[in-house]
């Protein structure tokens, strides 16, 4: 069973912000981290990821800067993203929103849909 992109769409920002809470990161590394954290259950598409970056940068949740990745030692520069204070508070809002959503939805979700 694959996750529906329609459903998760509203929370892509939250997911990315969570990854950025710990450390600044760049495109592929973020997508890899999302994949790892969800045990391969959610693979974010490149276009979705980039769309979220531009949107969040526009809204002031994140800011971008150019840097070289530490580990690899290549001279290839990448666009890194860093979470802003506005982003942090937006992240907290989204967390609360999700908890509420989850509470509401819990009333309508069967534990074992197969039995019905």
């Amino acid at each position: 069973m694959a996750i529906s992109s329609d459903v998760i769409r509203g929370y892509n920002d939250t997911i990315i912000l969570y990854v950025l809470l710990n450390s600044d990161s760049y495109g592929y590394e973020i997508s890899k981290e999302i994949r790892r954290l969800t045990d391969d259950k959610y693979v974010i598409k490149e276009t979705t990821l980039y769309s979220a970056f531009t949107r969040m940068e526009r809204n002031g949740y994140i800011e971008s800067f150019e840097a070289e990745p530490e580990a690899e030692g290549t001279e290839k520069r990448r666009t890194y993203y860093r979470i802003t204070d506005v982003g942090r508070s937006y992240y907290r809002e989204k967390c609360e929103e999700w908890l509420l959503t989850k509470d509401v939805m819990a009333h309508f979700i069967l534990e074992d849909p197969v039995k019905q």
Binding site: G27, Y28, E46, T47, Y50, T54
Partner: peptide
């Protein structure tokens, strides 16, 4: 810019 960034992500993924 979008094209560049997407290209970079794809290249990273491909190499890995």
């Amino acid at each position: 810019r979008a094209k560049n960034e997407l290209g970079q992500m794809m290249e990273d993924k491909y190499n890995e």
